[in-house]
Amino acid sequence: MATIRVQTEAIDIGAETAALTAGRADIGGIGSFLGTVRDTAGGRKITAMSLEHYPGMTERSLAAIAAEAEARWPLLGCTLIHRVGRLLPGETIVLVLAASPHRHAALEATAFLIDFLKTKAPFWKKESFVEGDEEWVSARDADDSAAARWDIAAR
């Protein structure tokens, strides 16, 4: 059963890992991806990144992505947490955890989950630059390619 959450608070990877593994000893490995805010975009310094989402659809799409991962790999649990609101450089944005009896499934499922989250989950980033201007981030073809390697057409 997946843990899915959208929150404004910072993500504590230690606490989330402990929650995922609490009371069980059948897990052989946990794959993790922790996304953080980079302080540059297109060669320019940013002061903050603001994240907006579509409440309702976000949770539905994250649940669908998690269900797809659970159908493809023998997972014993997974966690998808995404932050929204105003974030500063260096802060956490997104956490993916995938637990499995064996490492290959854990690592592959983690990569699949973050690739699909980036192309399917309705989040939008806006960057604030040191010069004072703001800009919505454009979707990257590279993200579609990353999702496409898992053999599901990106919609």
Partner: peptide, 8 residues
């Protein structure tokens, strides 16, 4: 209606 998503 929205732009292509840019989360993660």
């Amino acid at each position: 209606f929205f732009p292509p998503v840019t989360g993660g």
